[in-house]
């Protein structure tokens, strides 16, 4: 079978490249093209302006915290869903994908209502001195919601694939359950955990819809970069919006490449399983 007898390669690839160029590449090229109207110095001034830097700090800071929360609770959730049985488990498993299915605007107004001073949750937090809605904490809540499935869904198949023999060997050799987890299981699932974390982080950085309702959107305090792009656009500062969008695009692309590299390594490590340490 040296030759591939199947038809349609030129048509399939040609259509793919044409459609990819029209819908994705050409529009993204317009972004780069437009930003070329700026000199490097002008670009730098916009990207490092006080309000832009503050928005980047808010965006990356809250995305990082949300992704860390999801790394911890996502690991716990994936573990519980794979290893334990409890009533309603299939329902809970299906519910994990809710943030993928629920439109972000719906998530935004609902979380804002829940965590506002008179909301179901905010009502109990505010007397304790915790304000969530309309503060940076609200941004973390929204980002935690929308990026919740990534870590769980990346870890579940990896935990399912762990051979019980490895854990049994550790136990026979005298390891406590916690030692087994820390020294045997955690190293095995760490690449997947990092991949899920990066996916969640990368999704959270670009998020707009769910955040704007709960953030309060105060410049320098709770204004995220995507909102600042929209604000500039509404003031017809198209060049300013473009410069910030280029910054976001470069960061997203770097994260996408990082995820691809991680997944490639995971796939390779999978075939050489057990070779670690």
């Amino acid at each position: 079978m040296a030759r591939n007898v199947l038809p349609g390669f030129r048509l399939g690839l040609g259509y793919t490249l044409l459609y990819l160029s029209l819908i994705v590449l050409l529009p993204l090229a317009a972004l780069v093209f437009k930003s070329a109207e700026l000199s490097a110095a002008q670009f730098w001034d916009i990207a490092t302006g006080e309000r832009a830097l503050a928005s980047l700090r808010v965006t990356f800071g809250s995305a990082l915290i949300a992704a860390l929360i999801n790394a911890a609770f996502g690991l716990l959730t994936a573990w519980v869903l794979v290893r334990y049985t409890f009533p309603g488990k299939r329902f809970v498993d299906a519910l994990v994908d809710l943030p993928f299915a629920l439109p972000t605007a719906v998530a935004g107004i609902t979380l804002a209502t829940l965590y506002a001073g008179n909301g179901w949750i905010g009502r109990h937090l505010e007397p304790l001195g915790f304000k969530v809605a309309f503060t940076p904490v609200g941004i973390v809540v929204a980002l935690t919601f929308i990026s919740l499935p990534f870590v769980v869904r990346t870890l579940q198949p990896v935990i399912e694939d762990i051979e019980p023999e490895i854990e049994e060997a550790a136990a026979v050799l005298g390891a406590s359950r916690w030692q087994t987890f820390r020294l045997v299981l955690l190293p095995a699932i760490l690449p997947a955990l990092i991949t899920g974390f990066t996916l969640a982080f990368s999704r959270a950085i670009g998020e707009y819809g769910s955040v704007i309702f709960i953030a309060g959107n105060m410049p320098f305090i709770s204004e995220i970069t995507p909102l600042l792009i929209v604000a500039k656009l509404e003031q017809y500062d198209i060049v300013g919006a473009t410069a910030l969008a280029v910054v976001m695009l470069v960061i997203s692309f770097a994260l996408l490449l990082a995820v691809n590299a991680l997944q490639w390594r995971m796939a390779n490590r999978h075939s050489a399983a057990g070779a670690r340490r």
Partner: peptide, 12 residues
């Protein structure tokens, strides 16, 4: 990987 806001902006 692209922020939805950037996705809208490119068409503008």
């Amino acid at each position: 990987a692209v922020s939805p806001v950037v996705a809208g902006l490119v068409f503008v």
